[in-house]
Write a protein that binds this DNA or RNA. Sequence first.
DNA 1: CTCCGCAATCTGTGATCGCAGATGAACCGT
DNA 2: ACGGTTCATCTGCGATCACAGATTGCGGAG
Lengths: 236, 236
Amino acid sequence: MAVQGISRDSFGGGTTPLQRDSLQQQIYERLRNRLIAGSFFPGEAVSSRGLAQALDVSAMPVREALTRLTAEGALELTNSRTLRVRVLTPDDFDEATAIRLDLEGMAAIRAAGQATGEDAAAVRRLHRDLIAAAESVDADRYLSANAAFHSGIYTAARWPLLLGMIQRLWLIVGPSIRSSVPDRQHMATSMQFHNAAAEAMEARDATTLRSAVVDDIRTAAINIRASLADEAGDTT
Amino acid sequence: MAVQGISRDSFGGGTTPLQRDSLQQQIYERLRNRLIAGSFFPGEAVSSRGLAQALDVSAMPVREALTRLTAEGALELTNSRTLRVRVLTPDDFDEATAIRLDLEGMAAIRAAGQATGEDAAAVRRLHRDLIAAAESVDADRYLSANAAFHSGIYTAARWPLLLGMIQRLWLIVGPSIRSSVPDRQHMATSMQFHNAAAEAMEARDATTLRSAVVDDIRTAAINIRASLADEAGDTT
DNA sequence: CTCCGCAATCTGTGATCGCAGATGAACCGT
DNA sequence: ACGGTTCATCTGCGATCACAGATTGCGGAG
C-alpha cells in the first residue's frame, strides 16, 4: 500500500496524537523527521489520502505538508501524477554533499564558538546515545541517533536559518543514506569522527570540530555514492 | 488594503494570466520573484483571500503558496493570526548574509568552471541591462536587474539545489534590501563589483568572480544592516 | 489460453463551506 | 458628550466535494 511507511514509527513522538500547533505543521515535522532518520526509502510511494487516513485527519493538512516537502526536494511528482520519495541521481547527491560540506562546516565552526555548557552537555548525551546505538548495530536506531547528534551540534550554533537549510539537505539525502544500509564497518569508521567531534565540542575547538564533521560527511558520502551509482536508473 | 502590494507589478510576466503548471506553483513563483525583486516592504500585510481576489482564483492555491513562503521564512504569522512580510532583525540579516557569502561564493566558483558560451552570453546581456538600469536610477528597475544578473551567474553553475537555496535567501532579504532604498552612491559602488564579476565570468576566472560576488554582498550588507538597525522594533 | 478494451478507482488539484479567534468600529448607556 | 461594550467582519485553518488524467484489473471476444 501507499502508506506502508507509516507503520515504522521510530522517531520523535510516535504515539503522540498530533496536538500542538497547526495540523499541517505537525504532520510536516513528523514526516521530515522520518525522512531525515531514513524511515522512508527512495522511490517509496506516498499519497495524501493514504497518509490522511493513516493519521486520521482530513486530506487538507496532509497535502499542504506534502506540497512543502515536494517543493523542498524531498518528494517528487512522477509523470503519472503520483507522489513518491525522491530518487537521487549520483549528480544530485554530489551537489547535496558539496553544499553540506560547506554549510555543516560553517555550522560546526560557529557551534564551537557559541556553545554554552548546556549545549555541550546535550551533545555529550547525544554522543552517548549514538555510541549505544552503534553498539546495537540497529541501522534504524543508529541513523536516528546520528541525525540527532549532528543536529545537536548545529543547534548550538544558534543560527536557525542555517539549521533549517542543513535539515533541508538531510531531508533530501536521508532516504538515500538509509538505502545504502550502513554496516558495522561503516559505523565503526564514522564513530571515529563522531568521537573526535564530541571531544572538539567539549574543548570548543572550532578547527578540529569542523574537520571531524567534514571528514565524517566526506567518508560516508563515498559509500553512499557508490551504492547510488549501482542502482542508477532503478525507480522501484 | 491588504492587497496593496499587488498593484505594483514590475517583475516577470505581469500581464501573464497564470496558465502553465499548477496554480499554486505559478502563484508561488510570482510572489517569490516579487519578493526577491523587492516589490514588497517588510511588515506589509498579505492575506490569502485578498490575494485570491486580486488574482481572480480561489483561496486554495493562494494559501498553499503563502504557506510555503511562510515556511521558508519570507512571510511571518503575527500573533493576531494575520500574515505579513517578514521583518528581519539585524541578527537575522547577519545570519542570512553569512550564509549568502558562503553559498553565493561557492556558486560563483563553480559557475566559472561550468559556464558555457551561452551562459556567458546571457550574463553579458544581463550585465548590459543592469548598467542601463543603474543609469536610470530607478530603484525598482535596478533591483530587478540586479537580482537577474546574480541569478544568471549562479544558474551557470548548473546546481539547481544550490540555486534554490540561494534564491530562498534572496527571498528573505529582498524586502529589507528594498526598504534600504539604494541610492546613486550605492549603485555606483556596487556596479564596480558587477563589472568585475562580468569580466571574470567572461574570462572564466573563478577566484576573481568569487571575490567580486562576495565583496558586492559584503559592501551592500553594510548599508542595509545600518538601515535595519535604525528602524529596529518598528513593525509598521 | 491469450489479448484487447472498458470501467472502476486511484492520483493530485481546485473550489466551496464552516469554524474559532481577534480586530475595529459603531452603538448604547450614563 | 464620552466611555465602555457588543457585533460585524476579517484572519488562518480544516473538512468536504468536484474534476481531469492515469493506472489497473476485470471481463469478453477471438
